[in-house]
Design a protein around this nucleic acid. Structure first.
Lengths: 369, 369
DNA sequence: TAGATTGTTAATCGATTAACAATC
DNA sequence: TAGATTGTTAATCGATTAACAATC
């Protein structure tokens, strides 16, 4: 049985490693992961002892196999299901935060006592009356519940959840839940978080040598809308069906469309007939090919300022989604669109990118660290 | 310097004690607080050593003075100001969660890069452009920031915040922030919380003797709307101005109004001329008088079924608000309304309560534990 | 090989619990 | 007074870090 805090860190490791994997980093050392996670290398090595797979003294750890093992430990074999109770502002915010983010961990239903909310669909998740709670939880075999109800209702609902088979509760209410031995409770209490922050903000000793670069934050500018037609668009994707569907949509709208079924020929095609826009699949034959092509395109002086629209999808290997916010920041591309993509979305994004002034093309990526 | 986890517990203690204080519990023992907080009595005593005030072996601790001391430690003397960056769904949910809840800790501004959000007012908090961040933080002397932006923007904004003088950040983004020594960061990461819950939900050993009372949760029923006039309403409040303003509002609408300036005479008046509704101030000369009156009314067979509307306000002593959800559950009253109360709200609530069928009157309170 | 890095054990650190004399 | 409960110190527990032989 792995201790609580170790699990915490294993989750962080997995996220970091997934990002590294996307960026093509195939091996890593304990000190690298330690630095990224903000802890010591000894801690990392000790934590990784929880898993079977070993590193080797000279070569360190293999990113991919560690991610696989972490996935096995943290998520197990089957899909995991969760429910949410309390579809207020916070509940809705959490639903939309998770929507589609972790396909392996799915919030199958939301519950609320308010009859005006029941029946609606929030972030792809049906809102049901509390009377359905027991039956729904049992039917799905959900083990996890997210509790976003007022403190006064929390205990009653927690008891019902446990009775229905829930084994872990993330409790956002201020109530201290009483549950049987063996049920996991994670209290996330905003009031206490704020009070703690106030305390430490006041108290922590005036940092020896605080000299952070000041300067106001510059908001990320949204490209302004222009319009232009009869442009040439190059689609690079290894799935022929996908290519053909995009071609149909784009040609119908009056664009000229070129296609390539792999990165190599895509690059070649781009060099011989410079397109006005490139649509690039992020996950081709290996998980990072799309990224390499993006870098190669930016390295070519002639193609540097061609906007790139990157198509993102779920990695079937670990059921983790490419995180535009987190991972996209490093990539020299101008827009991300999720697959499968709705024709409207595709056209709107294409139109926007074609209108982008050249100085707003993202040539370097904007690494955050 | 008090350690991290101790501060955590001190915050919980304060909340529990405030609730006890409202319920008239003037003294307590370490084992009582321990049980309520779910820890050991030794832990409680050790934690309370952080404060000057002492308990006495025979009488235990004085609730009020401990709350005062905790407030002094946790919040300090002056008001504390915080800002929020990222007015998305989560940011808005958090804003409305905190709105008015802790008058001593105020979120003075929200920031967002989206020009369509800037200029609006969210939960009594103006939304400003990111370009105003530095100046606003400095002007208010805010020490705490709540960060609810995407991971890709988090580091940049954190740096700007620290540059502007922020000393503590509650970070809801998945990014691991790099900040100078001495800055407090609290990471609240929903993805990791969910993964942890999934892990422990799957893993924790099948609880020895799980036999929680099953039974579906019964949603709290909302009183149905009826209508009735020429009813007699008794107002009990020690503030003459307040009484007169309510009287004006209610009489104008056609109700008959009786008044009483303290609990004692209120009870007497209720007994001599049975009203159809009682409006009761929760905080009169001592902080719990309103509560005692409520219990006394329910103890009187003749008055038991008269609905009670309780007026709530902020406790000036500790700047904590009476928490309807948490504390109200114990009280045998039928509605709570915050002071100062808008005429419309007052009338609507009065109308609803007067229409309440007798079997829905809350005679006993509904304790949650 | 020599140097670097691992897995793992031992030492340290911090936090919780137990114990108990002081005392109301 | 006698019993119960405190404040506080010592013992225990758990988690982190350091150290180092094994080894790629």
């Amino acid at each position: 049985m792995i201790p609580h805090k170790t699990i915490d860190r294993l989750c962080s490791y997995r996220r970091i490693l997934f990002r590294w994997h996307l960026r093509g980093k195939e091996r890593f050392h304990s000190y690298e992961l330690a630095q990224e996670a903000g802890i010591t290398a000894a801690q990392v090595r000790r934590d990784l002892m929880s898993l079977k797979n070993i590193g080797t003294p000279r070569n360190g750890y293999a990113t991919a196999s560690i991610i696989t093992e972490l996935g096995a430990i943290l998520e197990g074999a089957e899909d995991q299901k969760a429910v949410l109770v309390g579809a207020g502002k916070l509940g809705k915010a959490i639903l939309s935060y998770f929507a589609g983010r972790r396909p392996n961990i799915r919030i199958v239903a939301a519950f609320d006592s308010d009859p005006t909310k029941v029946g609606s669909v929030l972030a792809a998740c049906p809102c049901l009356p509390l009377t359905d709670l027991d039956e729904t939880v049992r039917r799905h075999g959900a083990l996890v519940a997210i509790l976003t109800v007022p403190g006064s209702a929390a205990q009653e609902i927690a008891t019902a959840l446990v009775g229905a088979g829930i084994r872990a509760i993330i409790n956002f209410s201020p109530a201290k839940l009483k549950v049987p031995e063996g049920i996991y409770i994670d209290d996330i209490d905003f009031s206490i978080a704020l009070e703690k922050a106030v305390y430490f903000g006041r108290t922590l000793k005036d940092g020896t040598g605080i000299a952070p670069s000041s300067g106001p934050a510059t908001p990320i500018s949204e490209g302004s809308m222009h319009g232009a037609l009869t442009k040439r668009i190059l689609c690079i994707d290894d799935d022929l069906d996908v290519i053909e569907s995009y071609r149909a949509i784009l040609e119908q709208t009056g664009y000229e469309v070129a296609v390539a079924l792999d990165g190599e020929s895509g690059l070649e095609e781009a060099r011989s007939h410079k397109p006005d826009l490139i649509i690039l699949d992020v996950m081709m034959k290996d998980a990072t090919e799309g990224f390499h092509i993006a870098y190669a395109l930016r390295a070519d002086a002639a193609l540097r300022e061609v906007p790139i629209l990157m198509l993102t999808a779920i990695s079937s290997e670990w059921n983790m989604k490419f995180d535009k916010d987190q991972d996209g920041a490093y990539l020299p591309v101008d827009a991300f669109v999720d697959k499968p993509v709705a024709p409207d979305t595709l056209l709107a994004t294409v139109k926007r990118l074609l209108g982008l002034p050249r100085e707003q093309i993202n040539i370097m990526g904007s690494p955050q660290s």
